[in-house]
Design a binder for these strands. Structure first.
Lengths: 206, 206
DNA sequence: CATTATAACGACACTCGTGTCGTTTTATCA
DNA sequence: TGATAAAACGACACGAGTGTCGTTATAATG
């Protein structure tokens, strides 16, 4: 279908593979999916797939990068808009524009956990996880710090450690969402507890 | 070395395998360890190993059960002792007899996460994880509930949801401990935040 | 000491996933 | 309408891990 084809065609084919792969990873998880699964889902031959991605790890990292970029622009969008308060900003970054915790979790989250946990012995993967952690940490820390600087938030706790607890809690929820049946996790209620915790720690009155 | 041997000998050999396996799993994680690793670590032949455990999953579950039992008696021990308050009890269950958060995490925790996350698609494994979650949940919920009943804790939040947030937070810490470099996790500081959170939510004054 | 039940052994066959590589197909351009 | 560059294909060889099974060694028993 294409030799010496346009960059556009290459991009599309790559995107097609990524989309199919995302579906498979979502459904099967990282470890269980094989390149064969992806080939079949994407309607591509073995050789074709390896032409774009040199192995499963490479493929998955491409998906991660894609998503990271998407998420980044999304939060950047929120950060640039005018908001009434840093508290509002924090809630929007945490729960989206509607500022409302819901029972949905990123469908790829379980697979992501798998990817980083099973790969924790691998130098490269470890560094990558670390980098992503720092990225997330910075977002929360900056908001908290700014709020404290402006006097909107209490300075009782350091923004750094507070930001870390936010992430730890969310990670915990993601983990449970991955393992436990949906009804059991009570994502929404637990998220509300997170908000109350932050309210208390930041001494926000709303 | 032993045909038609005493129950004692069988137990010892089994224990020896379990101990060796625990070491390997701790070091390599669940997915990476192979039965061959265990054979070598335990100084047992392939046939010998399979004589005691029919596969890796079976082996790992045996370890889990062993540990669960150990932990159970340990907390049961704490629960039976007289304590001044439910707050004290809660702290002891959370951080041990010294009631002091430290930077150590169960060495097998990362492997456990792996076991349950990668096996989340498996009916059996899922049910097992669920069962263990309920066990942990019950411990915290009961203490919180008792404290509330006695008037020591505020009834502002339901004991059930509160207990769940405790677990979520701890799970999050375990996850980060598994993935991130030790220095990065700040286990101790985050644990102190957990305590403060609980103080606030339960309106405990200490 | 002979017998016996079985613990322990280790070679083997089988499965599954991977990555490669020579071949085929087909857009593009002269 | 060739010529050609490279995209796409799929057969293949390889390695790794598994579980089995026939054999061997040995502790218990009489």
């Amino acid at each position: 279908m294409s030799p010496k084809v346009s960059q556009e065609h290459l991009k599309q084919r790559r995107a097609k593979i990524l989309a199919a792969a995302t579906e498979v990873f979502t459904e099967q998880g990282y470890e269980r999916t094989t390149m064969k699964h992806v080939m079949e889902a994407a309607g591509v031959s073995r050789g074709g797939l390896y032409h774009y991605f040199s192995n499963k790890e490479d493929l998955y990292e491409a998906i991660l990068e894609d998503n990271l970029l998407r998420e980044h622009t999304s939060t950047q969008n929120i950060l640039e808009k005018k908001v009434d308060s840093y508290w509002e900003l924090l809630l929007k970054v945490l729960f989206g524009e509607e500022m409302n915790p819901n029972d949905e979790m990123d469908a790829l989250a379980p697979s992501n956990l798998e990817f980083f946990i099973t790969g924790r012995q691998d130098e490269r993967r470890r560094a990558y996880g670390q980098k992503r952690y720092q990225l997330g940490l910075k977002i929360y820390r900056d908001i908290l710090q700014a709020g404290q600087d402006k006097g909107e938030f209490s300075k009782k706790y350091k923004s750094d450690i507070l930001a870390r607890t936010i992430i730890a809690f969310i990670d915990g929820l993601a983990l449970e969402d991955a393992i436990l049946p949906k009804e059991e996790v009570k994502l929404k209620e637990q998220s509300i507890m997170l908000i109350d915790y932050l309210k208390m720690a930041l001494e926000v009155k709303v």
